[in-house]
Write a protein that binds this DNA or RNA. Structure first.
Lengths: 172, 172
DNA sequence: CTGCGTAGTTACGTGAGCGTGATATCGCGG
DNA sequence: CCGCGATATCACGCTCACGTAACTACGCAG
């Protein structure tokens, strides 16, 4: 019962450092480095000296997973910073049905696949396109697994199998 | 007349190090580093000690420009290496009408915009899409400028204005 | 109140990807 | 054949993005 209480506390919105590492699939040193350098601070509770605990929100973990995707696909942390800024600005959007698009100069959210096609037709520079649906679904599944005590052993640097990606026609 | 001969020699396929730097918009140290680390060796003449000259082919310069685009858009040199491998394998293709697509696991060439849309519908991982038409056209224009002695002063890290990008409808 | 585990902090090291000179050497003009 | 500029090479150092290990401090059980 006391354990169930702890689980509930997690559900309400709090994730400690090590748990976040398991969910996102990064090392603790990366999480720590990112927090110190200001890439992504825990939005619920910041660390106040040794022994204290950082507490991350669900939204934080989502952004971290996006960052991890970017790193796995060979994008620099610098660019990931711009991506995070974009996600922060467009929080109202439905992430599960949107694509994050980064170009050399700016980053935007494309709600429909049609918008992505339009951007491609514009044809300037390089496009980094991140489908967010996979990230959202995957996180939901992993949270359940973590709360059961199953250790979510995902290999480092390897793309996780995305759940719930539905192929679409171009003219949607 | 003797000068015209030198120019002709360049046209046939040879570019020295510093000229390549000006064309691509990178520093000599970058070109040197990339040659030493095996990212992109001059395919015509390698360096054999101090005082010798590296000679790059037109194809080399094209690949270098692609690498530069990747770097400007925040992609790591590691990923750029994979991109170069892909370009090497698909040399027969018409680069000016193709897009280079990099995912976290592999790299491919998409000949039509339709293929790009199909790939997006597949929806796995992150897509880095490089329209090659701009790179090809830009290089041709810059080569003319170089041979006139005009110094092609392009700002570092800023995307060059692409020529000849034509917007297309999705169902092409 | 006293261990003790857990989590954050510090110190130090590492490799990639260059920048900055200084140096060595080639090849060409005179 | 001899200087001289152009080009490659070397030595050194720097920043980013972490890894490893040791240390430290909180907070909870007993």
């Amino acid at each position: 019962m006391a354990e169930a209480q702890e689980m509930a506390a997690l559900d309400v919105g709090g994730f400690h450092g090590p748990v976040v590492c398991a969910l996102v699939g990064i090392t603790y040193r990366q999480l720590d480095y990112w927090a110190r350098t200001g890439l992504l601070r825990p939005s619920l509770v910041e660390a106040k000296g040794s022994g204290t605990k950082r507490v991350y929100s669900y939204q934080d973990v989502l952004e971290l997973k996006v960052i991890k995707q970017l790193l796995d696909s060979g994008i620099s942390l610098q660019s990931a910073r711009r991506a995070v800024d974009c996600l922060r600005e467009e929080l109202g959007a439905d992430l599960a049905s949107a694509n994050l698009v980064l170009t050399s100069t700016r980053s935007v959210l494309a709600r429909s696949n049609g918008e992505v096609v339009d951007l491609l037709a514009g044809g300037q520079g390089v496009f980094n396109i991140v489908p967010l649906s996979g990230v959202v679904d995957e996180l939901a599944a992993d949270i359940v697994r973590i709360e059961r005590g199953e250790p979510v052993t995902r290999r480092q640097g390897e793309a996780a199998p995305h759940v719930g990606v539905r192929p679409r026609a171009a003219g949607e």
